[in-house]
Simulated assay, not measured.
Amino acid sequence: MKEHDVVVVGGGISGLSLAYYCIKGGMKTALLEKNSEVGGSFASSKYASSGKNFWLELGAHTCYSSYQNLLDIIEGCGVTDTIIPRAKVPFSLMIDGQIKSIVSQLSIPELLMSVPNLFKLKKTGQSVKSYYSKIVGEQNYRDVLSHFFNAVPSQPTDDFPAEMMFKSREKRKGVLKNYTFKDGLQSVAFAIAAQRGLNIFTGTEVLGVRLENGKYFIRTAGGDEFIASTLALAMPSAVSSNLLRDVNPDIANHLGQLKAATVDSVGVIAGKEHINLKPVAAVISPGDVFFSAVSRDTVPDDSYRGFAFHFRPGLDEKTKRECITSTLGVSMSNIVHSVNRINTVPSLRMTHFQWLEKINTMLEDKKNLLLCGNYFGGMAIEDCVIRSKSEYERLKG
């Protein structure tokens, strides 16, 4: 048995940031991650050839100067000097097999008629559809902007709360407006995991949790058992719900009410000489089989180009391959590396704020049970870190 002050289950940015706060607070902390590496949505895919490394993101793609809490952690880990800019390349739409600019597909007269609403409408209490269709016009929203929004969490977002999609945050001075890292986002995850005092256990899937005499006993698939005064769950809500069934059925049931979407992502890398598509940040495909194909063109490489296709769920491999090759104009023989990844993202609804208020109330007297993830204050990276920080502060009381 391994005993710690805090055991964090889940090695994505939520779990890693919470573990970071705990070790800085002097707590003996362990982090358990079922995959072979930490990172979650920060897990960059790597391809090495002839001594050259090329990385490709399959989950999160961009960081911003408004991510103040994440930047604090980056500075604390001493990796600020690895921040690099993202090249300015456009987001594009694929219409009938042709790449089109987003502006070219907008009705400018409708946009000019609608945009004054931006200065008088409030996001509070409005869905993405009800708010933004008034800002850009119903046709522009339906034909263009809705597909851009759907591409963010790779699912329909009409019914998402408008105030949770794109938040206005204070920007950190002296930091690039948007950026990534020299070795990809996963380098941040590795930097946090390498902090002194943090015990990382990868390849460690948690099967069950029980609470005895004020301590949590965490059972793993490998037969190990961890003991902790504080348990922190940083996983999709359905997984956390299952682990808490015997510990706290009420909280487990409330977590189980949240809906989630499965994102089927396929990353492909090809020699840049084989792809005629002009540099893009992402290709968004209204009504097609994929929500977006996010490009590595934001960090240009001399030899390769990479794309992360985020597909609608349930497609067969042949359909996905045909979509990839037709979009990029390449044959499968030109693709030197491919990787598949399944991610789970929350499906937020207008009732989310009531749900959040209730879960926070339920946790008020459960100081040693911490819950974090991307389904609390929003889906952005910074929202994950903010939740982890607030849960740590609740623990410290």
Rank of each mutant, 00 (worst) to 15 (best):
A87H: 03
T204V: 11
T180S: 15
N360I: 06
A19D: 11
L32F: 07
C77D: 05
Y132M: 08
L32M: 07
A308N: 14
P156Y: 05
F91C: 10
K167P: 01
L231I: 14
H352Q: 06
A234L: 04
A87K: 05
G203I: 10
C323Y: 07
F160K: 00
V345E: 01
S107F: 05
N53D: 14
S237H: 15
G97K: 02
S107Y: 09
P109I: 04
I218S: 04
G25P: 04
D301I: 11
E317F: 09
L371N: 03
F91M: 13
Y20E: 06
F290D: 09
I386S: 04
A60G: 15
S154K: 12
A19N: 05
V345A: 00
Q354C: 05
S65E: 00
V239W: 00
F309A: 05
S17H: 03
T325A: 04
G306Q: 10
M350V: 10
L233K: 10
G306V: 10
V268N: 05
R296W: 00
S347C: 14
F190I: 04
V209W: 12
D383K: 09
L348F: 14
Y131H: 15
S390W: 02
N150A: 11
Y64N: 03
M1C: 07
Y131G: 14
E33M: 04
P346Y: 15
L231R: 08
R245P: 01
L71W: 07
T327H: 05
E163I: 09
A43D: 07
Q155Y: 01
H147S: 08
S130P: 03
L111I: 06
L356D: 06
K389E: 14
S229T: 09
G59Q: 01
M165K: 03
